[in-house]
């Protein structure tokens, strides 16, 4: 028990030192720095945003009357009282966009980290144990990868019900196979290295060999994949909410849902055209975060493995 604890302690400490070094190299490139800055800005927004704008942190502020005018069906353009305007239902877009950071980033973090952990464990088992176990896991991975992810998510949401929890569950089920495939490939290469052989010859258990030697050496591609996947999960979440497969209640402060509200007026293309801000502003907020995350992911890849530079 003690040795396992010290083992994990040492792993965490060395990991911390490497991460600090990685952040130093990352900030040498102006583009990656910009990506990191925007991402941190959104993380700050996710933590403090709902406190700053007040009200229920999950739902948008609804304003039905403005200067004695009933605005449920007439979105107001951007003005001092509503910096980003309002959308159908009298929802304040600025309020929703600020609160949306917590929901979008929170769901994405839960999904990506759970997916990465489940996928990495399965991938490490498949790569290290090999044989029939590996075949079963990899065929399962293939099957999950051949269903388009939006379709699989819609089916799972239908079966699991439409709540925040089932949204996270559905996205985790969609996301783990990518990590399994990635980690298995890594483990297969690293398993043949001399230091792994030395560790086995010195009498390490399989658990120790995998945890101490194989996983630390295959962690960087997982970092890169995680940082690139954050954006993809947010895009998928927004698409599902836009299509109306989100959790119940159409005043949820989620960026895809806010854009979806813009199309709920029922007037077709002409209505959308006359209220451009209901689409353009939440979309740009979403796009800025996803671009920043992708730039950051590319930066991390350049730092960790310059050979892979695309």
């Amino acid at each position: 028990m003690t040795s396992a604890q010290s083992l994990i302690g040492r792993t965490v400490r060395s990991r911390y030192a490497q991460t600090t070094k990685m952040i130093y190299y990352l900030t040498r490139s102006p583009l990656s720095t910009a990506g990191l800055f925007v991402t941190l800005l959104y993380i700050g927004l996710a933590i403090f945003g709902p406190i700053l704008v007040g009200g229920n942190p999950e739902f948008m502020r609804e304003v039905l009357y403005y200067h004695g005018q009933y605005i449920y069906n007439t979105p107001l353009p951007p003005q001092p009282a509503f910096p980003f305007g309002t959308t159908y239902g009298g929802y304040d877009i600025f309020n929703g966009v600020i609160k949306g950071a917590r929901i979008d980033l929170g769901v994405a973090a839960l999904v990506v980290l759970s997916g990465a952990i489940i996928g990495s464990i399965l991938g490490a088992i498949a790569g290290y144990v090999g044989g029939t176990t590996s075949d079963v896991i990899m065929r399962l991975t293939d099957i999950f990868l051949s269903i388009p992810f939006i379709v699989l998510a819609v089916v799972l949401l239908m079966v699991l019900g439409r709540t925040l929890t089932s949204m996270v569950e559905a996205l985790v089920i969609v996301w783990w196979p990518y990590y399994t495939r990635l980690v298995r490939g890594q483990v297969l290469t690293i398993r043949e290295q001399k230091y792994v052989e030395a560790s086995v010859a010195a009498g390490s258990s399989s658990f120790r060999t995998v945890l101490r030697h194989i996983l630390p050496n295959s962690i960087y591609p997982i970092y890169v994949q995680i940082s690139l996947d954050f954006g993809n999960v947010i895009l998928t979440l927004a698409s599902l909410d836009f299509l109306g497969f989100g959790f119940a209640g159409n005043n949820l402060a989620e960026w895809g849902n806010i854009i979806g509200l813009a199309t709920s007026g029922g007037g077709g293309v002409e209505t959308i055209t006359s209220y451009w801000w209901t689409i353009l502003i939440p979309g740009l907020v979403l796009l800025a975060l996803v671009v920043a995350l992708n730039i950051l992911g590319d930066g991390i890849r350049d730092v960790t493995d310059p050979r892979l530079r695309l």
Binding site: L235, S239, F242, L243, G256, T273, I279, L280, L287
Partner: peptide, 13 residues
């Protein structure tokens, strides 16, 4: 990075 539904709506406009 662009959301499919968003660019779709912009093209519709």
């Amino acid at each position: 990075s662009i959301p499919t539904f968003w660019i779709g709506l912009l093209i519709l406009i």
